[in-house]
Amino acid sequence: MARSTHTTPSGFLLPSIHSAEPFFTQQPNPTTQSKQTETWSRLILSYARHRNLFFVRVEDAETAGGEWDEILRNERIKRKVMPPHLSHILSEMVAKNQAAYEPPKQTRSVLLYWRLPEEWAEVLHQWVTSTGQLTTILTFYEITDPPVPSPLSGIPAVLLRKAIAILGKTGRAQIISIADGEGARFFAATGK
């Protein structure tokens, strides 16, 4: 049973366990299952970071052709993750604060925290500082889709709002309502 790592077309290095058939079956043994779920969570977060993905849905396991196919399916061993299994993994991730149901009050879709909102807040503040946009008002659009690609490109508005709210607590940002939506103004760190 020599299993090896595998590199996907998108350049992601799959772990060797991804080519083991039992990895795609939900294990009934609680110890085995927690270990399995832990490995799956890591794989999902790692892949999301690699592809800059923010959402995963249970539907991704049901239908082929999505952006998650590379890890939710393994055509070499003819296995795929069953939707109930993925649903279980996602609920475990939410419980461990590795993800959050988005929109809330449903369990079919999650927002992945491959960076925690606190970490995103730091990244955001650093980017604003390094691009010299402190004290200027930036619209959300300018942050999520800047002309020069940034670490924040493509960040969902929900996550961005959370990050700004965290900065606001320490007085480093302020949400401002503007004519065509929302904007934010950032300040230099005070007392640091």
Partner: peptide
């Protein structure tokens, strides 16, 4: 159902490193 030796038991992550 096929029975395997527990592949998760001693598994150490060997995939993409963040």
């Amino acid at each position: 159902v096929r029975w395997w030796i527990n592949v998760f038991e001693d598994y150490v992550w060997d995939g993409q490193q963040d």
